[in-house]
């Protein structure tokens, strides 16, 4: 095997692992979009705020044991998202989609301000009890946090996939996603499912905050992982869970290959914009994504 080929395979493995962690963050976005039709531009900030809360609680300032900090972070995200849905998003239901987008963008910047204001702006880390040695599996080379991240992502994507396909509440949530009006007529409490979607997005954001925070440190930069959500969901389809997995993996691999093969020749930077190039191409050829629902209008 040539050196280049081995390098490509290694990058591929890295890309898949990172991509699955993108999938997890994007899943939060998709859950909300599916159930409530709201486009949430603050998913990255949710991840950031979860990371900030957990790292701050576990730091010298509060000295929470890690498990307690994680648990507190989870409860915080659930309560926070329920409150947010109730106070900010619910009154906007039925308004033009632009109103919701602008509200969530505003929210994103508020969170970027409030997080450091309350817990301090100094970068922190989340130290999970895992080894620091790289793990080599066949031709692949991973850091332990990548494996943990990919594993957690797969686990939760499976749980949510199973929830939507097999459980009664999950089926009801798909019904709510399909039509709020008809669901209401069937006796489904639509608003309760909105709240449930936001809770799920909060749980996913907490996991993303721990994994990405542990992989790359916690400060307001952590919110940038949210920007990767957009190419992921455009590629995979805005309302598809499997699409999120596929989109995440494609974006992760594209990033890794761009970083490994193109960046050295052009002096860097392509890693950061390659996902968006793919996103724009996708929007031109298949605007609803690989697995998204194609809207058919009756004329």
């Amino acid at each position: 095997m040539s050196g280049n080929m081995a390098f490509a395979i290694e990058l591929f493995g890295q890309g898949v692992a990172n991509g699955l962690m993108y999938s997890l963050v994007a899943l939060g976005f998709v859950l909300i979009y599916k159930a409530t039709d709201a486009i949430n531009f603050a998913q990255g900030e949710f991840v950031m705020i979860a990371g900030i809360v957990i790292s701050a609680l576990a730091s010298a300032a509060y000295e929470f044991p890690l498990w307690l900090a994680l648990f507190a972070g989870l409860i915080f995200m659930i309560v926070f998202n329920i409150a947010l849905e109730r106070v900010v998003l619910r009154p906007l239901i039925g308004r033009p989609i632009v109103a919701i987008i602008m509200a969530t963008i505003g929210l994103a910047f508020i969170l970027r301000g409030i997080g450091p204001m309350v817990f301090g702006a100094a970068p922190r880390g989340i130290t999970l009890p895992i080894e620091d040695y790289p793990v080599i599996i066949g031709p692949f080379f991973f850091t332990p946090i990548q494996l943990l991240g990919a594993g957690t992502s797969i686990l939760f994507l499976l749980i949510f996939g199973w929830f939507f396909l097999k459980t009664r509440k999950g089926v009801a949530m798909r019904a709510v996603a399909d039509s709020h009006q008809v669901s209401g007529a069937m006796g489904i409490n639509v608003e309760r499912y909105f709240a449930l979607a936001w809770v799920m997005a909060g749980i996913v954001a907490m996991l993303g905050g721990v994994l990405w925070g542990s992989a790359s440190g916690v400060d307001t930069q952590l919110a940038l992982v949210g920007l990767k959500v957009f190419p992921v969901v455009i590629l995979g389809g805005l309302d598809s869970i499997i699409g999120v997995v596929i989109g995440g993996i494609i974006i992760g691999v594209a990033e890794a290959l761009a970083a490994g093969f193109i960046d050295p020749y052009v002096g860097g930077g392509t890693k950061d914009f390659t996902p968006y190039v793919l996103m724009i191409i996708m929007l031109m050829i298949r605007p609803y994504g690989l697995l998204g629902r194609k809207l058919i209008e009756r004329i």
Partner: peptide, 9 residues
Amino acid sequence: DNLMLGRHV
């Protein structure tokens, strides 16, 4: 599934 959703209530 559609019918079971009717049972939801």
